[in-house]
Amino acid sequence: MGEVLALACDLIARPSVTPDDAGCQGLIAARLQAAGFSIEHLRFGEVDNLWATHGSGGPVLALLGHTDVVPPGPVDAWGSDPFVPEIRDGLLYGRGAADMKGSVAAFVVALERFVAAHPDHPGTVALLLTSDEEGDAIDGVRKVAEAFRERGQRIDWCVTGEPSSKETLGDLLRVGRRGTLSATLTVHGIQGHVAYPDKARNPIHLAMPALAALTARRWDDGYDSFPPTSLQVSNLHAGTGANNVIPGELQVLFNLRYNPHWRAEQLESECEAVLRAHGLDYAIRWHRGGEPFHTPEGPLREAARAVLTAFAGGAVPEESTGGGTSDARFIAPLGAQCIEVGPVNASIHKVDEHVRVADLERLPALYLALMEQLLPA
């Protein structure tokens, strides 16, 4: 068994359901310290974060990942125990195999190879890991970025190992992500009997025109490689369970995925203007999950494009800002250029999550090639 596969299996065997790291970062820290890295453990609340560095000064190239995983769901639905890694038909199965313990293992191996081959490399190479990417993302990279900002820690380039590929390793390069903004809206009415609507105020009826206006609005026409901003209602809840009672309150959950045309506070203001225009008696709680970011043409994109094209036998990767969010949204505001390169994402968060063993074994060389392009000896 090769070293990246062995490390990936060791990490998968640790049931690090968010925010529990289950010893993954300790294992990685010991390996990197033995390779000459300086190790810093940054624990905030119940979340473990690891910052491992080699070299000094700039430019600073950081590899970003997470050791936590989502819950496996019903274990008996899996073909094998989700926390007992198993190889079948050229695929490595286990929770986190693709998202993203495979990439984390490849990061570690690539970093070990890089500093062994280039002990006096220019600048700094670093690994940043958290155990709070799949959870609330409060005490993970968000909090680390705040600490970095306070102490003046620079990051010039950031490579996130999220499973970004579509069909084959390296066929897609993420060069940005949309922002995410969530709302919990409570619309107040007056409870009453359905036979006497004049004595009640139905919050469902009152809210429907406002929600229709928000969901029908075309917020923008997109931005560069970003799709148009989208508002989606994800949950509606009201009522006592009886069909003859007008509810006194309606709760609505909705989310906006937005491009760099907007900032969170602008969208909040626009949405609340619609609610007020419809005369709603409401309360709203906002959660800003992260602003959008976009990496323009420059050394990082050029290096990634060249490396991925070589790995794909000459096929130029698609460059995209699609998908959900990643922890790079907290690193980009530090002034870093950020990209995401990782394995195929077809099975992430699913039963029988897996990664191709052949892809996993190629990943360290891919990350190593990126490092050598950006920090040439």
Rank of each mutant, 00 (worst) to 15 (best):
P74K: 08
D76N: 03
K350T: 09
T309E: 09
A238Y: 00
I155K: 02
D198R: 15
H261P: 01
W262A: 14
I204C: 11
I190W: 03
V125R: 01
T67G: 13
P228S: 08
I28N: 07
D76A: 08
P71C: 09
V141A: 12
A273R: 08
G313D: 14
P376N: 10
D120Q: 13
T240R: 02
S164G: 06
L211Y: 02
G161Y: 05
P299T: 04
E133Q: 07
L375W: 08
L308P: 12
L267C: 12
S56G: 10
G342W: 06
W286S: 00
S320C: 04
H54W: 04
S103H: 02
L275D: 00
E134F: 08
A346M: 10
V252R: 01
H261I: 14
I87N: 02
H121Y: 07
E353A: 13
L375R: 03
G248I: 07
I138C: 02
D99A: 11
G45P: 04
E270Y: 07
R95G: 09
L7K: 04
A369E: 12
I87F: 06
N259M: 06
G26R: 07
V108M: 02
D81R: 02
Q153M: 13
G73F: 05
Y196V: 14
L256Q: 02
I190S: 12
S269Q: 15
A126I: 01
A377V: 11
H41D: 08
P122T: 00
D221Y: 05
R95F: 10
M1W: 00
Q153V: 15
V357W: 03
A200V: 10
A328K: 09
L375P: 07
T325N: 09
L111S: 06
V17P: 05
V84S: 13
G26L: 01
L11Y: 02
R201C: 09
E272H: 00
V84T: 12
R276E: 13
A52S: 11
V344N: 13
P209R: 10
E134Y: 10
I39P: 03
D221S: 12
P74I: 04
G65V: 12
L256V: 07
P119F: 06
P376L: 10
L267D: 03
P228R: 02
H66M: 13
R151M: 09
I348T: 05
V47S: 15
V125W: 05
D76K: 00
S131G: 14
A212V: 08
A346F: 13
N49C: 15
H193W: 06
A200K: 08
G222A: 10
P82E: 05
G241A: 11
D221G: 09
A306R: 14
A13E: 15
T325I: 14
H41G: 08
L7S: 03
P296H: 05
A77G: 05
T186S: 11
P227H: 01
V69D: 07
A365D: 15
R356W: 08
L300A: 10
V60G: 04
F44L: 06
A6C: 12
R305I: 10
D156H: 13
G279F: 08
P71V: 11
R356Y: 11
P292V: 06
P247W: 00
Q153F: 14
D99F: 09
